[in-house]
Amino acid sequence: MPVENRLDCEILVVEDEWLVRLDLVEALEEVGARVAEAETAEDALDLMAGAMPRILVTDIRLAGVMDGWDLAEAYRGHYPEGGVIYASANVPIGARQVAGSVFFPKPVATAALIDACHAICSPKK
Protein backbone atom coordinates (compact mmCIF):
# COMPACT_ATOMS: atom_id res chain seq x y z
CA MET A 1 0.00 0.00 0.00
CA PRO A 2 1.35 3.45 -0.86
CA VAL A 3 2.52 5.40 2.17
CA GLU A 4 0.10 8.27 1.46
CA ASN A 5 -2.88 5.89 1.77
CA ARG A 6 -1.81 4.45 5.13
CA LEU A 7 -3.81 5.46 8.16
CA ASP A 8 -1.35 6.35 10.92
CA CYS A 9 -3.83 6.64 13.74
CA GLU A 10 -5.05 4.99 16.95
CA ILE A 11 -8.69 3.92 16.74
CA LEU A 12 -11.01 2.27 19.25
CA VAL A 13 -13.89 0.26 17.74
CA VAL A 14 -16.79 -0.39 20.13
CA GLU A 15 -19.34 -2.85 18.77
CA ASP A 16 -21.21 -5.64 20.58
CA GLU A 17 -21.78 -7.73 17.45
CA TRP A 18 -18.47 -9.59 17.16
CA LEU A 19 -18.66 -10.22 13.42
CA VAL A 20 -19.38 -6.56 12.62
CA ARG A 21 -16.57 -5.53 15.00
CA LEU A 22 -14.18 -7.99 13.32
CA ASP A 23 -14.98 -6.58 9.85
CA LEU A 24 -14.41 -2.98 10.98
CA VAL A 25 -11.19 -3.80 12.84
CA GLU A 26 -9.75 -5.80 9.91
CA ALA A 27 -10.58 -3.07 7.39
CA LEU A 28 -8.89 -0.42 9.54
CA GLU A 29 -5.84 -2.58 10.27
CA GLU A 30 -5.41 -3.32 6.55
CA VAL A 31 -4.71 0.37 5.97
CA GLY A 32 -2.27 0.58 8.87
CA ALA A 33 -4.40 1.86 11.74
CA ARG A 34 -3.57 0.74 15.25
CA VAL A 35 -6.91 -0.60 16.44
CA ALA A 36 -8.20 -1.59 19.87
CA GLU A 37 -11.63 -3.10 20.25
CA ALA A 38 -14.29 -3.38 22.93
CA GLU A 39 -17.68 -5.05 23.18
CA THR A 40 -19.22 -2.62 25.69
CA ALA A 41 -18.89 1.04 26.58
CA GLU A 42 -17.64 0.04 29.99
CA ASP A 43 -14.84 -2.07 28.42
CA ALA A 44 -14.02 0.87 26.15
CA LEU A 45 -13.67 3.23 29.10
CA ASP A 46 -11.28 0.77 30.76
CA LEU A 47 -9.16 0.74 27.58
CA MET A 48 -9.22 4.54 27.39
CA ALA A 49 -7.88 4.76 30.94
CA GLY A 50 -4.61 3.31 29.59
CA ALA A 51 -4.36 5.17 26.27
CA MET A 52 -6.69 7.60 24.57
CA PRO A 53 -7.37 6.76 20.91
CA ARG A 54 -7.43 9.53 18.29
CA ILE A 55 -10.77 8.20 16.99
CA LEU A 56 -13.69 6.46 18.66
CA VAL A 57 -15.87 4.36 16.35
CA THR A 58 -18.98 3.24 18.22
CA ASP A 59 -22.33 1.62 17.71
CA ILE A 60 -25.21 3.34 19.48
CA ARG A 61 -26.98 0.37 21.01
CA LEU A 62 -24.45 -1.59 23.07
CA ALA A 63 -24.63 -4.34 25.63
CA GLY A 64 -24.10 -3.03 29.16
CA VAL A 65 -25.33 0.01 31.02
CA MET A 66 -24.01 2.76 28.74
CA ASP A 67 -24.93 3.27 25.11
CA GLY A 68 -22.81 4.74 22.33
CA TRP A 69 -24.19 8.24 22.88
CA ASP A 70 -23.05 8.13 26.52
CA LEU A 71 -19.67 6.68 25.55
CA ALA A 72 -19.01 9.42 22.98
CA GLU A 73 -19.89 12.11 25.53
CA ALA A 74 -17.53 10.55 28.11
CA TYR A 75 -14.76 10.23 25.50
CA ARG A 76 -15.11 13.87 24.45
CA GLY A 77 -15.13 14.88 28.12
CA HIS A 78 -11.61 13.45 28.42
CA TYR A 79 -10.40 14.19 24.89
CA PRO A 80 -12.27 17.17 23.37
CA GLU A 81 -10.33 17.08 20.07
CA GLY A 82 -10.90 13.35 19.54
CA GLY A 83 -12.79 12.16 16.50
CA VAL A 84 -16.11 10.38 16.96
CA ILE A 85 -17.70 8.15 14.35
CA TYR A 86 -21.05 6.52 15.02
CA ALA A 87 -21.79 3.33 13.05
CA SER A 88 -25.30 2.13 13.75
CA ALA A 89 -28.53 0.75 12.39
CA ASN A 90 -30.31 3.13 14.79
CA VAL A 91 -31.59 6.47 13.63
CA PRO A 92 -29.17 9.33 14.28
CA ILE A 93 -30.37 11.81 16.89
CA GLY A 94 -28.70 15.14 16.22
CA ALA A 95 -29.22 16.35 19.78
CA ARG A 96 -27.30 13.32 21.12
CA GLN A 97 -24.40 13.42 18.65
CA VAL A 98 -21.24 15.09 19.91
CA ALA A 99 -20.14 18.13 17.94
CA GLY A 100 -18.20 17.41 14.77
CA SER A 101 -19.02 13.71 14.78
CA VAL A 102 -19.79 11.56 11.75
CA PHE A 103 -22.66 9.07 11.44
CA PHE A 104 -22.67 6.02 9.17
CA PRO A 105 -25.69 3.74 8.85
CA LYS A 106 -25.10 -0.01 8.99
CA PRO A 107 -23.96 -1.84 7.07
CA VAL A 108 -21.00 0.52 7.08
CA ALA A 109 -19.21 1.09 3.79
CA THR A 110 -15.64 0.49 4.92
CA ALA A 111 -14.21 2.77 2.23
CA ALA A 112 -16.29 5.66 3.58
CA LEU A 113 -15.24 4.82 7.15
CA ILE A 114 -11.57 4.80 6.15
CA ASP A 115 -11.99 8.12 4.31
CA ALA A 116 -13.56 9.66 7.44
CA CYS A 117 -10.70 8.35 9.58
CA HIS A 118 -8.17 9.83 7.12
CA ALA A 119 -9.94 13.19 7.35
CA ILE A 120 -9.79 13.13 11.15
CA CYS A 121 -6.18 11.92 11.44
CA SER A 122 -4.61 13.88 8.63
CA PRO A 123 -2.66 16.92 9.76
CA LYS A 124 -4.58 20.12 9.14
CA LYS A 125 -2.83 22.51 6.77
Results as ranks from 00 to 15, higher is better:
residue 42 E to F: 04
residue 43 D to R: 07
residue 44 A to G: 01
residue 44 A to P: 00
residue 45 L to I: 04
residue 45 L to M: 10
residue 45 L to G: 08
residue 46 D to T: 09
residue 47 L to P: 09
residue 47 L to E: 06
residue 47 L to A: 07
residue 48 M to C: 15
residue 49 A to V: 11
residue 49 A to R: 08
residue 49 A to E: 13
residue 50 G to S: 07
residue 51 A to H: 05
residue 51 A to I: 08
residue 51 A to L: 14
residue 53 P to A: 05
residue 53 P to K: 10
residue 54 R to Y: 11
residue 54 R to L: 15
residue 54 R to I: 11
residue 54 R to H: 14
residue 56 L to H: 09
residue 56 L to I: 06
residue 56 L to R: 02
residue 57 V to R: 12
residue 57 V to I: 12
residue 57 V to A: 07
residue 58 T to D: 00
residue 59 D to P: 03
residue 59 D to N: 04
residue 60 I to F: 04
residue 61 R to K: 15
residue 61 R to S: 06
residue 62 L to G: 01
residue 62 L to M: 05
residue 63 A to H: 02
residue 63 A to S: 05
residue 63 A to D: 02
residue 63 A to C: 03
residue 64 G to P: 01
residue 65 V to S: 07
residue 65 V to A: 05
residue 66 M to T: 03
residue 66 M to L: 08
residue 68 G to L: 00
residue 70 D to V: 00
residue 70 D to H: 02
residue 71 L to D: 02
residue 71 L to Y: 02
residue 75 Y to I: 07
residue 76 R to H: 14
residue 76 R to V: 14
residue 78 H to M: 13
residue 79 Y to I: 14
residue 81 E to G: 09
residue 82 G to V: 08
residue 83 G to V: 12
residue 84 V to L: 10
residue 84 V to D: 10
residue 84 V to R: 13
residue 85 I to T: 14
residue 87 A to L: 09
residue 88 S to H: 08
residue 89 A to T: 08
residue 91 V to M: 15
residue 91 V to E: 09
residue 92 P to Y: 03
residue 92 P to S: 06
residue 94 G to M: 12
residue 94 G to V: 09
residue 95 A to T: 15
residue 95 A to I: 15
residue 95 A to C: 10
residue 95 A to V: 15
residue 95 A to S: 14
residue 95 A to L: 12
